[in-house]
């Protein structure tokens, strides 16, 4: 993998969730760390998979402040699998409650970020996941 690798990430939250401070902040932090960032509101969880596939992103980050943590994540992961892109890792952030964790882990999320998480850990996690997605894709190609 060359050193000029530019990870592509999709950051998203529901169109009904008005709380966008966290995801906008993470978008700016990733951008400043050299990522290409696509930021969308989804209406349907399947929208996330479609955009992720169309844009060929390396990682998906989903922000939750107002419910649907487990059911939406399951739907996104399901849509990715249907599109044969189950290899794209999904991470979640925001208000992730103890009772959400088991369902999120079962759905296969690769990381959970809550309030107060350091930029460093967020950026490094995204970078590592992006690198491995790209490496696997290149190996398969």
């Amino acid at each position: 993998m060359s050193t000029d690798f530019v990870p592509r990430v999709l950051l998203t939250k529901s169109f009904i969730d008005s709380h966008d401070r966290a995801i906008k902040t993470i978008a700016l932090a990733l951008r400043d760390a050299g990522f290409e960032v696509i930021l969308i509101d989804y209406e349907m969880p399947s929208d996330v998979a479609h955009v992720a596939v169309d844009e060929d992103v390396d990682v998906i980050g989903v922000s939750f402040m107002s419910g649907g943590q487990v059911s939406v994540t399951e739907a996104i992961v399901g849509s990715l699998a249907q599109a044969n892109r189950g290899d794209i890792p999904v991470v979640v952030g925001g208000t992730i409650r103890p009772f959400d964790v088991e369902g999120l882990n079962s759905a296969g999320v690769r990381a959970i970020f809550r309030g107060g998480e350091s930029f460093e850990r967020v950026i490094e996690t995204f970078r590592a996941l992006a690198l491995s997605t790209r490496a696997e894709r290149n190996a398969a190609a």
Binding site: Y42, M44, P45, S66, G67, G68, V70, S71, V72
Partner: peptide, 11 residues
């Protein structure tokens, strides 16, 4: 469609 997970969750 698509909002079921949020019903009654934070309000």
């Amino acid at each position: 469609p698509g909002v079921q997970g949020a019903i009654g969750d934070t309000g």
